[in-house]
Design a protein around this nucleic acid. Structure first.
Ligand SMILES: [Mn+2]
Ligand SMILES: [Mn+2]
Ligand SMILES: [Zn+2]
Ligand SMILES: [Zn+2]
Lengths: 140, 140
DNA sequence: AAATGGATTAGACAAAGTCCAAATTCTAGG
DNA sequence: CCTAGAATTTGGACTTTGTCTAATCCATTT
């Protein structure tokens, strides 16, 4: 929407803005997610980041993704039973989930209303509401 | 709602009604889910089924749960990044997910309306819509 | 340059789930 | 009742995702 120039340089600024010390590896991982604006698994990110040249270990990929998550730079999407997807979009939104390809497509939450949800159990508050629309090719 | 007498005997009928050959192990696994009407992981089911006496292998637990799912006797709930929950309720419904305890609570879908979802990508049909309300204790 | 604290790493480890070939159990026919 | 064939179950190897730890590396400060 607003800014769409995702270079490695302003990845460092983005990280600093979230109180994250920008290191080589962290910049590469952030760049992989933000430049593409896609939903990626840890394994995909590891492949992308190590594709060109530099080496980033599996431990660092997981460390970094969990760090980004804690600082609200990215969020997780739980939709595939076998792996977590990491999402550079932290704004309120939902997802189409293509059951055929595993692809995720964002749905802006601004246009969506959910009505008729029952009252929360006593002493509970809502942390968030996730809507997942599972879709597949019609000619399947 | 309707029937709430879940005995091992009518588990066999239930399995036959879904074209599943009722074996000892399948009856025990179905009984674990339907008598409790809870959302259980494969590991929890394995523990329950082997608790009293008989032995059921891990392979059979997974084989059976996948078989039940294929025959629409149960459904999966994908909400915890580390394990799948199996749900004896196949009617349309959503879930509260207690982030503290991992507990799932059903929300009947009859009362819930979702409006403002965008059009599906071309050539796609909806397989289902899942709503997950993540909740946590307010005094956290 | 040395010290320090943070970051990264290899590799061991754990947990969920799948796969396979062998063994068991079930079913039908004779 | 007995047996062949089919269906089911099983132990254990294997894969994948993710975590953990102790050693190493690196950046910043003095
Ligand atoms: Mn899994
Ligand atoms: Mn996992
Ligand atoms: Zn998204
Ligand atoms: Zn449910």
């Amino acid at each position: 929407m607003e800014k769409q120039n995702y270079t490695r340089d302003n990845m460092a600024d983005l990280l600093r803005a979230h109180d994250i010390n920008p290191t080589h590896q962290r910049i590469e991982i952030a760049y992989a997610l933000f430049a593409r604006q896609e939903h990626l698994s840890a394994d995909q990110i590891m492949t992308i980041v190590n594709d060109r040249h530099s080496e980033t270990s599996k431990a660092t990929v997981y460390n970094t993704l969990n760090l980004f998550k804690q600082h609200n730079l990215i969020r997780e999407v739980i939709v595939d039973p076998s792996k977590v997807f990491y999402d550079p979009n932290t704004g309120p939104h939902h997802h189409f989930f293509n059951l055929e390809t595993g692809e995720l497509i964002d749905i802006d939450a601004g246009d969506v209303q959910i009505q008729g949800l029952p009252a929360l159990p006593a002493g509970m508050v809502t942390e968030g509401v996730d809507v997942i629309v599972r879709i597949r090719p019609s000619n399947a």
